[in-house]
Design a protein around this nucleic acid. Structure first.
Length: 732
DNA sequence: CCTCAGCTGTTTTTT
DNA sequence: ACAGCTGAGG
């Protein structure tokens, strides 16, 4: 079969990667902008076109749904046929699919539910309450972290090594145990559990494992540097002796160590398999030379790299602009001014990205853009299916399908408020626990046995009636699993959702919420109905349409809220920028303590991750890169004098064009020894005495004029006494 | 059930 | 600074 058309468009390293011969595993170190997805997609097409694999034998795993969708789309485009039969998905999506198909072997109920992080958090809080643990002393977040950390490492409670006398561990373990028990009883599975269960399924059911080992002759992994322990263990198991692995990643872009990613897996992989072909993709098709070389120089400061030097055929391009702003407002002002210049050159706003270390930084920038009427999109914040109103509606839906769904019961029993207070719910919970029945059943019993005050009983009964009515309407009166609409035909998913939203009175409830928030919630509920309409259900083993929709809601929480459609400047954290590229990139807030973040300063490993993050940010830029920092930043309500990020000085000066601060702000006067508390100096004919006030701010007094003097740090970290003209005030 | 004062935490985020 | 939550009181 002639595959030259597949290979023609590739450079030699890419071609080598695509054509790795049978019997070999591959590790493709794909630098930023080197055509990583391209290689992955061409590899799959090549495998299929040469007959090395059938679509049925290919498994491609990614981390995000976005990456998975993009990959599938590009494969289909390249092969000019649907990639059906091929498994392309996220680790979680694929684990979910396996567990659905083998729910019995995995010890799960058929319609097991997926808990998202919020569901998990709520459940953990419930466990804490049940175990009489004080949330102040045992923060649910930490318990959640503990549980997930261990699951990510494949550890069940019994496998955790207990340190003698570690109270936190003791308690956390107890919580983990109880949490697991409840999940098992409810048939609920959290994100980490999906992976762990899929792994254990393979371990305990040889026949299942062997089936998939036979099936998947080729396993391709995207963003390999981001895999955690359990993901890699699962891959190894699945590959077995014969499966061929094709791992693509970049150790320099590993920025998720804090959530369990093991960069180590890249090294381990080469140790685990004898015949791993290591191929480096070093030609960059994204950025101009100066940007790339600057990024190379920065990342070279990290120890422990597999090593790689990106190069480009593009010219040097522009120098990186560096701007030291007076404060964060002025920084934002500068950024906006630059954007206006860019737009004036005839570019689109969406070609511009502002990247920052933490979300809190977005506000000031947003205000500056707003002030100049520049449309923007912010990535981040709540996602569609994570929103409270959406989860409320889904809880009604769940409950009407399964009355014993306790978390859903708890969620909506008094939403909208119908007079069922905490007291009443406590009573219900207590009975449920004592008798080992669901909250629903307990509620029914309490009404029957007159275990509630008349008022409470009434309220609970109205809730029960409401859900029964929903269930009856949606499912039709018969026991047959058939939902009927007004015409007596089957109710579609979106009709069911719509019906439940209407009956629940959620819309009326949110109308009362003040501000635009209630309106937004109502719109989201409407959006949920259309999400139901658009949902494409593919017949699959072990799941019905509603179940598939609910799983979809958990696994693909939907787009991040962002100003849609319009051509706008893109704003996001450095983390969410990974994988993207923009002609013009602003990297703002390069200050010690902010970026690198304070929390990562004490550990060399974490500092290196910050440096990689900076590297990721820089390599997002195609044509123009602007780096900025503020000398004064208001953070957490306090003004802080900052020094420029070490990353700024790690970029060789030859790539940088330091933009002068125009006139108004600062001028170095004296170099100040670190330990000096006051300073005497002359300015013009006057002698001044400046002494340190609070922190590093100097109060400066002179006769006839009053000015302020500050301590600032230059790029090299040298401390200077600086006259802040901006603050100069003349008296008399 | 609602409101308001007081307290707390505040890196990054997918699934 | 400030959002989000809790607990007290109306």
């Amino acid at each position: 079969m002639d595959v030259s058309d597949l290979l023609n468009s590739l450079n030699s390293a890419q071609r080598e990667a695509v054509c790795v011969s049978p019997g070999h595993h591959a590790l493709i170190l794909a630098g930023a902008g080197s055509g990583k997805t391209r290689v992955l997609v061409h590899r799959i097409a090549w495998l299929i076109r040469t007959g090395a694999a059938s679509p049925y034998g290919v498994l491609a795993v990614t981390f995000t749904n976005k990456a998975a969708n993009e990959m599938r789309g590009r494969i289909e485009e390249l092969l000019a046929m649907p990639a059906s039969g091929m498994w392309v998905g996220t680790f979680h999506g694929i684990a979910h699919r396996l567990l659905r198909a083998h729910y019995q072997e995995a010890g799960l109920p058929q319609g097991f539910q997926i808990l998202d992080s919020d569901d998990q958090y709520r459940l953990i809080r419930r466990v804490l309450r049940e175990l009489d643990l004080d949330e102040k002393q045992w923060p649910p977040r930490q318990m959640q972290g503990f549980i997930n950390r261990h699951k990510d490492r494949g550890e069940r409670p019994d496998q955790i090594k207990v340190h003698q006398g570690d109270l936190f561990q003791d308690v956390a373990l107890k919580v983990y145990r109880r949490y697991e028990e409840i999940c098992r009883r409810r048939g609920a599975v959290d994100f980490a559990e999906l992976l762990l269960r899929a792994y254990e399924l393979f371990l305990s059911r040889r026949e299942v494992l062997e089936h998939y080992q036979r099936r998947f002759s080729h396993i391709l992994i995207d963003e390999f540097q981001d895999t955690n322990t359990i993901q890699y263990a699962w891959i190894k198991l699945l590959a077995g002796d014969r499966g061929e692995l094709f791992a693509v990643g970049d150790d320099d872009q590993s920025i998720y160590g804090w959530r369990g990613a093991q960069i180590e897996n890249i090294h381990q992989y080469q140790r685990d398999y004898a015949n791993v072909e290591l191929i480096r993709l070093e030609q960059n098709y994204r950025s101009t030379g100066n940007i790339l070389n600057a990024a190379n120089a920065l990342i070279a400061k990290n120890a422990d790299r597999l090593g790689k030097n990106l190069w480009t055929e593009y010219g040097e391009g522009e120098l990186i602009k560096l701007y030291g702003a007076f404060n964060e407002l002025e920084e934002a002002r500068y950024v906006v001014e630059q954007i206006e210049g860019w737009i004036a050159e005839g570019h689109a706003r969406s070609e511009v990205a502002i990247l920052y270390r933490s979300n809190a930084q977005s506000r000031v920038l947003e205000e500056a853009l707003l002030y100049r009427s520049i449309p923007y999109r912010i990535y981040g914040g709540m996602r569609f299916f994570e929103r409270a109103e959406i989860k409320d509606a889904l809880a009604y839906l769940r409950l009407s399908m399964n009355r014993d769904d306790d978390p859903s019961f708890e969620r909506v029993v008094n939403t909208p408020p119908r007079g069922i207070g905490a007291r009443t719910v406590d009573n219900i919970r207590e009975l449920a626990r004592d008798r080992g029945i669901s909250l629903w059943r307990a509620a029914e019993e309490l009404i029957a046995s007159k275990g509630l005050t008349a008022r409470a009983a009434n309220a609970v009964d109205s809730f029960i009636q409401l859900v029964e009515q929903m269930a009856g309407d949606v499912q039709g009166s018969s026991d047959v699993d058939m939902s009927l609409n007004d015409e007596g035909g089957q109710m579609d998913l979106h009709e069911q959702i719509d019906h439940i939203v209407q009956l629940s009175n959620l819309i009326e409830h949110f109308k009362k919420e003040k501000g635009e928030r209630g309106q937004a919630r109502i719109e989201n509920l409407e959006e949920l109905v259309s999400a139901g309409r658009q949902f494409e259900f593919e017949e699959e083993e072990g799941i019905d349409e509603l179940g598939a929709f609910l799983a979809h809601a958990a696994l693909e929480a939907g787009e991040r809220q962002a100003g849609e459609g319009e051509d706008g400047v893109q704003m996001m954290t450095l983390h969410s920028a990974k994988g993207l590229e923009f002609p013009l990139v602003f990297l703002v807030g390069l200050e010690e303590g902010l970026f690198p973040h304070q929390m990562s300063l004490d550990e060399p490993g974490r500092l290196e991750e910050e440096r990689r993050l900076c590297y990721v940010g820089m390599t997002r830029a195609r044509e123009r890169l602007v780096i900025s920092y503020a000398e004064v930043r208001r953070l957490y309500g306090q003004e802080k004098y900052t020094r420029p990020s070490r990353f700024v000085s790690e970029i060789p000066a030859e790539f940088i064009d330091e933009v002068r601060i125009r006139g108004q702000v600062s001028q170095p006067l004296y170099r100040v020894p670190e330990e000096e508390q006051s300073h005497e100096f002359s300015l013009g004919q006057r002698l001044f005495h400046a002494k340190f006030g609070e922190g590093t701010l100097l109060d400066f007094e002179g006769s006839g004029a009053q000015a302020r003097v500050q301590v600032k740090f230059d790029r090299a970290g040298t401390k200077w006494l600086v006259l802040a003209y901006a603050k100069l005030e003349r008296i008399g």
